[in-house]
Write a protein that binds this DNA or RNA. Structure first.
Lengths: 237, 237
DNA sequence: CAGTGGTCTAGACCACGTA
DNA sequence: ACGTGGTCTAGACCACTGT
């Protein structure tokens, strides 16, 4: 019934209402109780529920209209951060069934370019992976990944046939820095075939190098058909 | 100096303190007046200043410690910083001569979409600008900008014939939040002509909405030929 | 025009951390 | 120990808006 110590009253009320909304019990568009009703329910003053509702507005969970009441807002459109999205999460956020397929998996030594990229002096072993993420029936993202077997030797024993390397690495290896390069490209013949778009079609390409304090872990290039994806980032000066 | 409708009391206090912090007059680390002092200064109740200070905490501008007071926070660390320099700086970093041209400048009321975008209830006046940034002889970036004349009335008196709106706004208006949407697009006929690329050529599009605590300031769409530009971003978990 | 949210007041008690 | 911020109350007036 009661959680440990749900902190302050308005925090408890906030958590309560938030849970109702996020769980879907209060669906999008539904009106939530008036301030004066909530006062009675929680036996508190109007300032207290007002504070809670103001926070819900700021969080984008509800909107309020005079005389009409407070209403649950439609699921957040694009409020995601650029943080580190796992492709699966992105797809499911779109409400589409997620599909994953491993295209190729090869263990090999790094080329000269890759050696420089990973900050090595001499070529080291890499795991090179290519996989395709699908949303519904459509290809959603082509993933081309290099995993440092120096940093993550355990990757050599993973097949990645079912689990995407991004998901595996995320829970396997802690990281401290992710560098992104974001660009627009024209689909090459190979990319066009895999993503089922015309050759030359615009694509959004995200190249990410992930490191921890000691060394480079993995480098991935994600290619999305332009119409299927955009990145969203918020920050403060 | 003050806007016409001073809005509500706590909004005025918020704007006042925010301006002091963002302008640097209250430096990072400095203690700001205690709640009870602010009550006296603004002749209001403690709830009112408390509400204001809570918003400043949420915005990350101050932090509060019991018994000690409230302090201006150090400028945001690079935790989630997407480094987007001014276009001029980008071009000069490439070692190419920078060129700027104003294509059009129009004062008009916001459309319905724009009204929603800026968070207004009724259409307000905007300054709509289009300009072109060049690197060497080549067009480098098409800028399509809307400036809120509510937030920045002084913009109405600027010609922007010589100085780009981005540069002007940066030194004119303090901001606290920038939201980016990054996507790849195919050049439309109009964009292709302006950027001197083939129709359908891939472009990188960055849409940025800049706000302070009270209101939206400006929205800009920057379109770059895909081969000329990429974004770089570093993140920490 | 009635009822909602928006705002504000003048108190109060308490937890906490710093001096 | 003391003064700060954290929280809460029980009122109040007002602006807006949907009916």
């Amino acid at each position: 019934m009661k959680r440990k110590t749900p902190a302050s009253l308005h925090q408890r009320i906030l958590a309560d209402i938030q849970e109702r909304i996020l769980s879907g019990r209060w669906a999008a568009g539904a009106r939530i109780p008036f301030e004066r009703e909530l006062m009675a329910q929680y036996r508190c003053s109007r300032m207290t529920v007002s504070k809670v509702l103001a926070q819900l507005v700021q969080a984008g969970l509800i909107e309020r209209r005079r005389r009409a009441g407070s209403f649950v807002r439609a699921p957040r459109t694009q409020s995601a951060l650029l943080h580190i999205p796992e492709v699966r999460v992105e797809v499911e956020a779109l409400g589409k069934p997620y599909h994953y397929a491993l295209l190729s998996r090869r263990r090999r030594a790094a080329t000269a370019k890759e050696t420089a990229l990973f900050g090595w002096r001499t070529p080291q072993p890499l795991l090179a992976l290519r996989c395709l993420h699908g949303a519904g029936r459509r290809p959603f993202c082509l993933e081309e990944r290099l995993v440092s077997l120096v940093a993550v030797p355990a990757a050599a024993d993973e097949s990645f046939a079912q689990l995407s390397p991004g998901a595996w690495l995320l829970q396997q290896v802690p990281w401290t820095l992710a560098e992104h390069r974001i660009s627009a490209t024209a689909a090459t013949a190979r990319v066009a075939r895999l993503l089922a778009v015309p050759v030359g079609a615009p694509c959004l390409e995200v190249a990410r190098m992930t490191r921890n304090l000691e060394q480079a872990i993995t480098r991935v290039r994600l290619t999305y058909p332009a119409d299927l994806h955009q990145l969203v980032a918020s920050f403060q000066p």
